[in-house]
Structure formats: structure tokens, C-alpha cells
């Protein structure tokens, strides 16, 4: 425990903590500005303009609607023939709707959960950076070697550093999440757009927030392990960003069966208390290839297991490598 306490003081004393917290607060601020824009009711002039646009669209629809639908169906048939599969251009839903022109304002009761979930990835990435740099800086400067000449027990040193980063990750995530929730409440309250904030809504937000905070701690701990493993902040972040781009973004779209094994799917499952993803199933018939999308559920437990196993694997690999590595 003494080592963990010392490591905590070391991590907290690092300037980067301040920079990351300030950066996080700025990012949360931008999210709140966007929330303010969404919650702000339209002015009378805007509503009048929107109604005018809607009226013109209706008028145009009554005059040319049939022709528009016919043109749409023609285009749909032509493209379907070229594609060799039936395509849906949405020709049956072309009639202008009022909400397309006069959108309803956002209400806190429906917006808060998605707002917290969508911002969670950013918050978790920030504390991950804190974890990575806390240890990578020690590896780069060689201060890890100095440390080991005082405490020559590598696993004890490693786990104290990982634990300290994890512990530091929790309050940083908690503060940022609290500012986000509090700010969102203030923004919507100022606009009179709280909606119906029932106890169930608050409980749901509370559980989501708690899961985000736990995730922040784990991300910081995993980050610090990666910092030791890869010995360099740039390399560690480059590797993570490269993985996110190549595997999660590109490969995830190209190879649908890997979706339940993607980090982003499981992160969503954990943060949102379960999620869904779509899988296309295509069959070849006499009329061509027909594809149907199936929505598959991924539960909270699966997300937790995936993230937990992943964290343990990173920590285990780091411990194995660090225990035997020659240090400069």
C-alpha cells in the first residue's frame, strides 16, 4: 500500500493530469454548447420561416407529388437492375412532414442518457492517455531504473503504478462526467426543456455514470500497463489509434461477423447497459440476391466480460514482459 500511495502522489503531481483535466473540461464545454443549441427553442421568426418552408413544400408536393414518386420509382427500378438486387429509395415516404421543417427541441429526459454515453468514449480516452503517459514517461526518462534500484521488485512496482493510475482515473472521469451531467441539466433548465425527469431517468443516468467512471479507472490502469509495455507514449497512442482506425472502423465495416468482438461494440454494451448491432444475411433467389438486416443484442454482461478479459490480458502480458526485460 505504501508504494501505491507514493505512486498516487507521483501521478497526481504530474502536469499532464492538469492539462488532461482542463482538456476534458473544454471538451465537455463544447458538448454542452452543442446541447444548448439543441435545447434552445426556435424563435418566433424561425418558426414562421420554417412553417413557410413547410407550406411551400406541401404546395409543391400537391402539384408535383405524383410525378416525383413516379420519377423516384423509375430511378429505383433502374438502379436495382444495375445493382442486381432490389433497392429501396424510400419513394413511399416522400410526402413532406412538418417535423422535417419545424423540429422539436431537445429535452433533458431523453437527451441526457445518450449525451453521457456518446461523450463517455472521449472521457475514457483522456484518462487512458493519463495512464499511458504516467508510466511511459518513466520508461523514456529512465526514472523507472532509478526507482528499481530503490525497490528492486518489478511486479510490485508495476502493480503499484497500474493501481495508482487506475485510482487517479476514477476521480478524473467522475469529475468530467459530473460536470457534463450538471452542465446538461443547467443548459436544459435554462431553456425550460427538462422534460419529465422521473426517478427512473435519474437512476438510469446514475448507473450509466457509474459504469463510465469504472471504465475510466480501468482505462487508466490499462493505459499505464501499455506505457510500461511499449515504453513510449507516442508508440502506445499510435498503436491504439491505428487499431481503432484499421480494425474497428475499416475491418469492422467490411467483416460484419467480427462486430461482437469489436472494442467499440463492447464499450457501448458496457456504458449503455446493453446494445445492438446489425448483421446482414443475404440469400440468392430467382429474382436476385436479397439481403435482410438482423438486429443482434449484446448484453451488459458480455461487454463487461470482454473488457475485463481484455484488461487482464494486457496486464498479464505487461507483467510477463516487464519481469524479464533488460532496462537501460
Amino acid at each position: 500500500m505504501r508504494l501505491v500511495a507514493v505512486e498516487l502522489r507521483r501521478v497526481v503531481a504530474r502536469r499532464l493530469i492538469t492539462f488532461v483535466t482542463i482538456g476534458g473540461l473544454l471538451a465537455v464545454g463544447l458538448v454542452l454548447v452543442a446541447a444548448w443549441q439543441s435545447a434552445r427553442p426556435l424563435t418566433d421568426a424561425q418558426i414562421a420561416e420554417a412553417e413557410r418552408q413547410y407550406a411551400w413544400a406541401l404546395e409543391d408536393w400537391e402539384e408535383n407529388g405524383e410525378q416525383m414518386v413516379a420519377d423516384c420509382l423509375d430511378a429505383q427500378a433502374g438502379e436495382s437492375e444495375l445493382a442486381g438486387e432490389p433497392l429501396d429509395f424510400g419513394c413511399a415516404e416522400m410526402e413532406p412532414q412538418r417535423e422535417w421543417y419545424v423540429p422539436p427541441s431537445s429535452e433533458l429526459s431523453t437527451a441526457l442518457g445518450p449525451l453521457l454515453s456518446s461523450t463517455a468514449t472521449l472521457l475514457v480516452f483522456l484518462v487512458f492517455v493519463v495512464g499511458v503517459t504516467a508510466t511511459a514517461a518513466e520508461m523514456t526518462t529512465g526514472s523507472m531504473s532509478t526507482w528499481l534500484t530503490f525497490v528492486p521488485q518489478r511486479l510490485r512496482v508495476l502493480f503499484s503504478k497500474v493501481a495508482a493510475s487506475g485510482v487517479v482515473g476514477v476521480p478524473i472521469t467522475a469529475v468530467l462526467a459530473a460536470v457534463l451531467v450538471g452542465g446538461a441539466y443547467g443548459v436544459h433548465a435554462a431553456q425550460g426543456a427538462l422534460g419529465t425527469m422521473t426517478g427512473a431517468v435519474w437512476a438510469d443516468v446514475g448507473w450509466t455514470g457509474l459504469r463510465v467512471v469504472v471504465l475510466g479507472g480501468v482505462a487508466a490502469a490499462v493505459g499505464s500497463a501499455l506505457g510500461v509495455l511499449l515504453k513510449n507514449t507516442g508508440v502506445a497512442l499510435g498503436l491504439v489509434i491505428g487499431y481503432l482506425l484499421v480494425v474497428e472502423a475499416i475491418l469492422g465495416n467490411l467483416v460484419q461477423p467480427i462486430q461482437p468482438f469489436l472494442l467499440q461494440t463492447n464499450l457501448r454494451a458496457w456504458v449503455e447497459g446493453g446494445t445492438t448491432y446489425w448483421v446482414s444475411e443475404c440469400t440468392v433467389t430467382d429474382q436476385g440476391t436479397q439481403c435482410t438486416g438482423t438486429e443482434v443484442a449484446l448484453g451488459l454482461a458480455q461487454g463487461a466480460a470482454y473488457l475485463g478479459v481484455g484488461a487482464v490480458l494486457v496486464l498479464g502480458l505487461t507483467a510477463l514482459v516487464f519481469r524479464r526485460r533488460d532496462l537501460a
Binding site: 508504494l3 507514493v6 503531481a13 514517461a137 530503490f150 537501460a328
Partner: peptide, 30 residues
């Protein structure tokens, strides 16, 4: 290790930490 003090090659401490802070952390660790 409590009986051994060592400097290997160049002194290695975190550059942003003061000398006192680095020593205090080491003192607390041991």
C-alpha cells in the same frame, strides 16, 4: 538493497519534478 545506493550512467529523474519532490518520493518508497 537498503545497503546499496547506485547511480547508473546519467542521473535519471522526471525532468518536470523538482529535486526535492523526486527525493521525497524515493524516501517515502523506502
Amino acid at each position: 538493497v537498503g545497503r546499496v545506493g547506485a547511480i547508473v550512467e546519467s542521473p535519471k529523474f522526471l525532468p518536470t519534478f523538482s529535486g526535492r519532490r523526486s527525493l521525497t518520493l524515493l524516501a517515502d518508497a523506502i
